[in-house]
Every structure is written in structure tokens, then in C-alpha cells.
């Protein structure tokens, strides 16, 4: 399992694996027209995560389009085999759509989700 760092752009998120904290962080916005190409290296990285690796995935997205939504599901499903995976889904207070989006994944993926409400003013 190697390093992973993709810098953000106006339409794509920053994705970073922080190895010493065992955290994979996705932050920003994910609205590329074709998300498959963008997420390919992330999915390849996820393929190499050992099943006994204790990993925390933090999703801190402001927007994601439907093209990205399937890629996120692919990512969660690839990591689902890990015995010690937790997904932390961040959402801004008053952004009920983002909370519902996290609940949708929680419903589909067999991994514990933790919902973290963030005060956007803080």
C-alpha cells in the first residue's frame, strides 16, 4: 500500500492518505464530468489495502455529482473487506442533503459510518 496524494482543483477534491494516522481524507468538491478517470488511482490504491489494516476514511465533501457518487460507492465497496474500517462522513449543519447522501451509503455499504456535524461558521 503506497502513498496517495491528489491535489484539489476547482472541480476535484484533495485526496490524501496520511499513513502515520491511517487516515484517508477526501475533501473539497468532486464534480468532474467523468469521475471514473479521476478516481481510478484511488481505487487502485484501495485495492492494495490489506484486509486487516485499521483505516479511517474521512469524507469532507461540499459537493459531489452523480458521476462521482458511483465512484465513492466503488471506493467504499473496495474497502469494505477491511475488518477494521470506519467511514467518517462530515456534513455542515443545515446541509441536510449531504447528511442524507451519507445515510444512503450507510444503507448500502456494510461498513460502520460515523456522522460528524460541522459548524460552517466555526
Amino acid at each position: 500500500m503506497g502513498p496517495l496524494h491528489i491535489a484539489s482543483t476547482v472541480k476535484t477534491p484533495e485526496i490524501q492518505f496520511i499513513a502515520d494516522e491511517a487516515r484517508l481524507v477526501l475533501s473539497g468538491r468532486s464534480i468532474p464530468e467523468n469521475a471514473v478517470d479521476f478516481y481510478r488511482p484511488v481505487l487502485e490504491w484501495a485495492q492494495a489495502v490489506p484486509s486487516d489494516f485499521k483505516l479511517t476514511v474521512q469524507v469532507q465533501l461540499e459537493y459531489f455529482n452523480t458521476s462521482s457518487s458511483k465512484c465513492l460507492l466503488d471506493l467504499f465497496k473496495r474497502l469494505e473487506a477491511s475488518d477494521a474500517l470506519e467511514i467518517q462522513w462530515f456534513f455542515d449543519a443545515d446541509d441536510e442533503d449531504m447528511l442524507e447522501a451519507g445515510e444512503d451509503y450507510d444503507h448500502i455499504v456494510g461498513v460502520p459510518f460515523k456522522f460528524v456535524e460541522v459548524d460552517p461558521e466555526a
Binding site: 464530468e33 467523468n34 469521475a35 471514473v36 452523480t66 458521476s67 457518487s69 458511483k70 460507492l73 444512503d104 444503507h107 448500502i108
Partner: peptide, 17 residues
């Protein structure tokens, strides 16, 4: 939720969602 869980994609990169 049902469609999100389906693997198909459109030929132009859309999720069909």
C-alpha cells in the same frame, strides 16, 4: 439508492442517476 447500487454507467461517463 437502488440505482446507485447498480454497476452500470452511461457511455459518456454519467452515472445514469
Amino acid at each position: 439508492r437502488k440505482w446507485l447500487g447498480q454497476p452500470s454507467r452511461s457511455s459518456r461517463g454519467g452515472a445514469g442517476l
